[in-house]
């Protein structure tokens, strides 16, 4: 356990020292907040069903944080560690090999929670962000989203034969996902055929439950979204189990 704790601390340092993961997980959501906050402000608007633009955007940005750290960064990190022989090196220690993956998950959990607190703190301070829900239900939506997207990142790392292939696959899913899921652009502005397609993306359901619970929805009311996320996670983990290699 001591080993796992130390490795998790090391992995957090690696996350922060890596420019891409640091910027896109911790800084970029704030950049979005301040750009769109300065344009639209947070005044109640009929376009957002009587809510402010910032109130509606922030849960979407939270899903973006999760997608970035859990899917993109974790997938690329594990594929890179395998290629470079980092996984191999730790397998030749008393550390349980699963600890390597557990340390990644722990890192992503702590980084996404920190980034969410930073984002909501800034939104509260500068735009009077309002939270209408129950914090436990929102935390539940957060946990399900994180699980599903981490499983997605992990399955790509398992399938991909090289870090280059992994990055390509991750990007191919990630970029459409952040624009079509409602995480950054409201889904309502998209054509209905695109909206239908977006139902295939885990992030779409993540945005729905994060925003739903943000505005007071009961987590139990999102059974179908949660089911889709859990099934996607289950399939991803089953495929990973069959295809994952340590080297």
């Amino acid at each position: 356990m001591k080993g796992l704790r130390r490795l998790a601390i090391v992995e957090m340092k690696m996350f922060i020292r890596e420019t891409e993961s640091f910027f896109f997980t911790l800084v970029f959501p704030l950049v979005l907040l301040f750009i769109f906050g300065s344009i639209y402000g947070n005044k109640p608007s009929s376009f957002f069903g009587g809510h402010g633009a910032v109130d509606v955007s922030v849960p979407g940005y939270v899903s973006l944080i999760i997608a970035n750290a859990g899917f993109l960064t974790m997938g690329a990190t594990i594929a890179g560690y395998r290629e470079q022989g980092v996984l191999r090196r730790y397998r030749a220690t008393p550390l349980n090999p699963v600890s390597l993956l557990a340390a990644q998950l722990l890192t992503v959990l702590i980084m996404t929670v920190s980034s969410t607190l930073l984002l909501t703190g800034a939104a509260k301070a500068f735009y009077d962000l309002k939270f209408y829900g129950n914090i436990l239900h929102f935390a539940g939506a957060f946990a399900v989203s994180l699980l599903s997207l981490c499983a997605g990142g992990f399955v790509v790392a398992s399938i991909a034969r090289s870090p280059r292939a992994a990055t390509l696959m991750l990007m191919t899913v990630f970029y459409p996902m952040i624009f079509l899921s409602g995480a950054t652009i409201p889904r309502e502005v998209l054509p209905s055929s695109v909206q239908k397609f977006s139902k295939l993306l885990p992030l779409t359901h993540s945005v729905t439950i994060l925003r739903g619970t943000w505005f007071g929805g009961n987590l139990g009311a999102f059974g179908s979204e949660i089911l889709v996320l859990v099934i996607l996670a289950g399939v991803a983990m089953a495929v990973s189990r069959l295809t994952f290699r340590w080297e």
């Binding site: 080993g3 490795l7 090391v10 690696m14 090196r89």
Partner: peptide, 22 residues
């Protein structure tokens, strides 16, 4: 090992400390 690596941004000191804890 003949072929292995550590995390690129891990400092030498951190590697030695981490392995001591393993």
């Amino acid at each position: 090992l003949q072929q292995s690596s550590l995390q690129k941004r891990l400092k030498v000191k951190e590697a030695l400390q981490l392995f001591s804890d393993l």
